[in-house]
């Protein structure tokens, strides 16, 4: 057993180097998802019933696609349409689209906690629809959705491991490669588990802390009602 641990030591840096790929990929996917989620929320809030229903349907369909299928669709399917995408970009794109659908749901579930009179008053003082969304409604929704967004990020961070399927050399992929070299999966997988766990656990503790803090100080929901 001890010799197996020792045989793993020389390869640790390969896994640690790939941690940055994992983090970069998760941040890229999250940011793209944030943009898509906010855009979907804007479109959904200020469009008529039919368009809103169409957007809801679109979100439901996207959420029904497994990440693995999404990645393969983009990485292996898109070249048939004429564009070839590098695997890292395909992974970020696939994760971003899926996360966008989830993030728009997060925003939507918190939208009702911002009173509709705020939107009416911001229109009354002469802001455009976009401006009232951008400067009045969305900041409040965003503030309340921070804990849920942090949780969404931890989901993305864990899901980067699926990018193994299209050959992105992120942390999990590298741990599998190392395992194949030293012919033992035990220690490399335990090692990456520990890294994932440390990051996810700290982030979810932070999310819980913020959740308590943010819901405590939030006056609009308590005084005006949604």
């Amino acid at each position: 057993m001890a010799t197996m641990v020792q045989s793993f030591f020389p390869y640790i840096h390969i896994i640690l180097d790939a941690l940055w790929v994992t983090i970069a990929l998760s941040i890229a996917g999250f940011s793209l998802g944030f943009g898509i989620g906010a855009l979907l929320l804007f479109l959904r809030t200020f469009s008529n019933r039919v368009v809103a229903r169409a957007i809801d349907g679109f979100i439901d369909v996207i959420r029904g696609i497994p990440l693995l299928v999404m990645l393969f669709l983009i990485f292996y399917g898109f070249p048939a349409l004429g564009f070839q995408i590098p695997n890292m970009l395909a992974a970020a794109l696939g994760m971003g689209i899926l996360s966008g659908a989830y993030q728009s749901q997060i925003f939507r579930s918190l939208l009702h906690s911002v009173s509709s009179s705020q939107y009416e008053s911001s229109l009354a003082i002469g802001l455009s629809r976009w401006e009232s969304f951008r400067y009045v409604i969305f900041p409040q929704v965003l503030r309340l959705s921070i804990p849920a967004l942090i949780n969404e990020y931890t989901i993305l961070l864990k899901d980067t491991s699926v990018a193994y399927a299209i050959g992105v050399t992120e942390m999990f992929t590298q741990s599998v490669h190392v395992s194949q070299v030293i012919m033992s999966f035990t220690y490399p997988l335990l090692f990456v588990s520990a890294i994932y766990l440390t990051i996810c656990f700290s982030l979810s503790s932070l999310a819980n802390h913020l959740y308590r803090k943010l819901s405590y100080g939030y006056s609009i929901r308590e005084h005006i009602g949604g």
Binding site: T154, K158, D159, T160, S161, V162, Y164, F172, S175, V176, F185, T186, L189, L190, V192, S193, Y196, L197, C200, F201, S204
Partner: peptide
Amino acid sequence: GTPMMVQLFF
């Protein structure tokens, strides 16, 4: 706190 991929592979 750990990916399902890691658990499955393990």
